Computed example of a mutant assay.
Amino acid sequence: MLGWLMAVPLASAIAQSDCSTVIALSKLSQTTVEDRKSVEAASAAFCDEYSKSVQSGKAMSASASYKFLAASYGSSSVSAEQVASRYCSMSASFSRREDAYRQYVETIAPDAYKAYESCLAMQNNSVNMAVSALTPKTFQMVVGFAPKDENAKATLGVSGSPGVSCKWGGAGIGMGKVFTAAGTDTLMCVRDDSRTAEFVTVVKTSGVGSTMTVPWGAMDESGYALDALGKLQAQVQELQAELAQQRQQASTLAASLAAVKAEGSQATAAVNARFGKIAPTVLCSGDGWFPRPAAPTCPSGSASSGEFTHSAPGGKAGFGGNCRVCISTN
């Protein structure tokens, strides 16, 4: 039931060659990073389907667009309402939200959307980037310079949080990179402790300056995102506490039921014992014509519990007597 919350190793090579790859550095779950065009197309299709289901009052089917967006949660059991709350507007038409891709990125990789936008700004500034490999303690990013002016140059610098060291290709650690013409190089970064969240900043200082800061999420040695594991552990602990409380409530209820049962058994025994000592006696008069003879009185030590009239067997109408039921206690 909780499997959907588990993060997955991020050590595999990143296949994409655009800015969506920087999202993987802080990804929380086993979710392939999709590009903006794919996400927005799926969001538009899903929101149209959701709008129709709301208007018709019928439940949505598990369509391709629903499965596509539900995957961003890392869960196969996420409801259509949950998906709609993130990707569709709250208007009557439930149209796709304008920030659908931002919602998608922040779902799978919190705080990564700003890095994605900065990467796009770098592209517009002739610097292309794509993460090409990632392990818990290292990542490589292919950086390319594609100048619009053949005489343009690009000077890039890199820095990071205290636990990170980076270098360009075969250059020394922390050194900048100067592109004098179109070309590519590899930025290689390492960190001392994968369990500590870090960041890496790339700055273009020549021409029109631009900056991209990429969050590098904390992972364990196997490449599992610790943020996701922490949430999982917290939910497990919460469920364990809830289960313990329910068990305590069940134990208390069982004790109460046992006490009620014991009390009921005692009361039943007392009633049975009391009625076991009661001896009923029926006293009848002799038979006679109407008015029939009166029923005898009860003897001393007993009490009358009522009378009834009887007719003599085989006698004529109005011929019979009266009886009295007398109760005594042994």
Rank of each mutant, 00 (worst) to 15 (best):
T205Y: 10
A42C: 05
A171G: 10
E34R: 08
G314V: 02
C284N: 11
V282M: 12
S118P: 04
R97F: 03
N330T: 15
W216N: 06
V78G: 05
R324Y: 14
S285A: 13
C119L: 11
V214M: 01
M188L: 05
V203G: 14
D149Y: 05
T252H: 14
A294E: 07
S302H: 10
A267D: 15
P147N: 09
F46A: 01
V33Y: 02
A171Q: 10
G169N: 06
D111C: 13
Y101E: 03
G157T: 14
T252K: 15
G170F: 09
S26H: 00
A44K: 12
W216C: 09
A269P: 15
D18P: 00
K177F: 06
V200R: 03
E49W: 02
G160T: 14
Q240G: 07
S63E: 04
N322W: 10
S265R: 15
A225I: 01
S26Q: 07
R191K: 15
S38D: 11
I278R: 11
K114C: 11
E150V: 13
G172Y: 07
A24I: 01
A121K: 04
G314K: 09
L187H: 00
T186S: 09
G209N: 01
A181C: 03
L283F: 08
D99T: 05
V236W: 08
G209H: 05
K52S: 09
L239P: 11
S95P: 00
D48E: 03
T31A: 12
D220R: 09
T184Q: 07
T186Y: 04
V83W: 03
L120P: 05
S126Q: 05
Q245R: 08
S285R: 13
A121I: 01
S265Q: 13
S56K: 04
Q240K: 08
A44E: 07
D99N: 05
N322R: 15
R96A: 00
M60L: 06
V33L: 09
M122F: 08
E242M: 07
N128Y: 00
V33F: 00
E81T: 01
A121M: 06
P313V: 14
Q266P: 15
A71F: 00
M90Q: 03
